[in-house]
Design a protein around this nucleic acid. Structure first.
Lengths: 271, 271
DNA sequence: TGAATTTTGTTGCAAAAGCCTCGTTCTGGT
DNA sequence: ACCAGAACGAGGCTTTTGCAACAAAATTCA
């Protein structure tokens, strides 16, 4: 893309109109900040017919740069999301329940570390809904944004920004977390076996581990779907946990391991 | 559709339909994962009429939880983006030009500090578009998210999260910034007079000041609209700046002050 | 159980968006 | 300047969406 100094060369004499390429770039730029643009809007703004915009959108959609919608286009879904069929749907409900139950553990005035992940985002939503006025330290942008408008005070961790997870990780993050002692931490994980929680991404495992070390009460928010799974990176031992919040209590070896480590099991599907 | 007809004959006994609240929750959840949902899609998935979904969307839009679109809805724009009406449009174009010009100053491999603010967000967009592979340190969430998917490496500052500006500020932020030395910094400000840039929010002034101190090249991105305005908090002196990127070069006392301080003026409306 | 209220579905029509074709305008090269 | 090809806009038509009013079903509460 060698278009370094081309902008000043355009001697638009009569009426100024953007060229195709430039117009399409503008569309993409627009979509970086807004999730959705309308054909009618852009047609007015660029002074071109709706047909032209339609052609632009179709072309961009062919390249996978935008997703068409009736009346406009949106930014493409980043990190292909498993289109929610029946099963995924049920999972979302589980997460919501887990998040709600976990949020109830937090008391006014407490300080809490919250991990990144879809379950913890649910927890943040529940916490915002409850209006608990606590201090939250997190490395997750969605958690910060969810709680940001409410009663909680948010401390965001520094670190390298990972777009895929909308979270920060890295040594800066760890060092920052290490400077605090908090009442609780709430973490999720992608796997949970007798050896404890595990994570597929090394960077995240380190953050979770550090959070566990800095908190008095340590809660794992986990979906029973993850039982038995073992991720690449070990997050911590059973003994590092104080309680787990799950939809359904585990059984067998996993239950035995939890009992041996005196971990409290909070299941959402029972009284 | 033939299948749908068949199922509707059967009085849905085992398969209970979701209630209003639950359905709306699902919609919000869905929007967390994808930027846009269609009425027609959801109507099929929830087994409700399109009218019902329309009502849901309208209700959620009233609460500001979604943004309506023709045929569906999108997640609301985070970090309030001024809706493009005719008048605001002109200002946006100025900012866009300033942002683009400023982005061209950044070379591959450089390290850059980027402030929060609407002009710097524009710069981030331009930078993402150019694909410059640099290291960016910022306290602005939108800047991080805009650049996150591209070639740049992002370091997010820690600090207290301010929902109104989608940025972090505070002593943690300052202390973090002080640990780095960078090639450039790009800051905006809400006012610019002979005494230098100024800001209405104290917390932001401190961040900008610190960024200025840690950078070799110091650029101010400023809209000529701000000329002469004096905010509450002083950000720095003219001599703290290396160049200003503006849409139109200033005149009079402001120009004299800039020349006295040997500040380079980069105006987007001239050659 | 039955009435009141809420929620959802249906229908009809207006408005907006989509899609196709063809003629016009713009652009770039010789 | 000229021509060929690309880009664009206009018209005609179909499909989708939106909107409003009313009917049907479900839910709540006494």
């Amino acid at each position: 893309m060698a278009h370094a100094g081309t902008t000043s060369e355009i001697p638009v004499r009569g009426r100024r109109r953007l060229k195709k390429e430039e117009r399409r770039r503008q569309i993409l730029l627009e979509l970086k900040l807004r999730p959705h643009v309308r054909i009618s809007e852009l047609s007015e703004r660029f002074n071109v017919s709706t047909e032209t915009l339609r052609r632009d959108f179709d072309a961009l959609a062919d390249e996978g740069l935008v997703a068409r919608a009736h009346g406009g286009a949106t930014a493409p879904t980043q990190g292909h999301y498993p289109s929610l069929d029946e099963r995924a749907n049920a999972r979302i409900e589980e997460r919501e329940r887990i998040g709600k139950r976990a949020a109830e553990l937090v008391q006014d005035g407490e300080t809490v570390m919250i991990d990144s992940g879809s379950t913890t985002i649910e927890m943040a939503r529940a916490l915002a809904y409850l209006g608990t006025s606590c201090t939250v330290i997190t490395n997750s942008i969605p958690v910060a944004m969810t709680l940001g408008h409410g009663a909680a005070q948010i401390l965001l961790c520094p670190g390298e920004y990972l777009a895929a997870e909308s979270a920060v990780i890295g040594t800066e993050t760890l060092e920052f977390l290490s400077r605090y002692n908090v009442d609780r931490c709430m973490i999720g994980s992608s796997g949970f076996s007798e050896e404890g929680p595990s994570e597929t991404v090394r960077g995240f495992a380190a953050v979770k581990r550090t959070m566990l070390h800095r908190a008095r009460e340590r809660h794992l928010l986990i979906d029973s779907e993850k039982f038995g799974r073992r991720g690449l990176a070990h997050v911590g031992d059973m003994s590092d946990l104080r309680s787990i919040v799950v939809n359904t209590a585990p059984a067998g070896a996993l239950l035995a391991a939890l009992e041996a480590a005196k971990v409290r099991i909070i299941a959402t599907d029972e009284g």
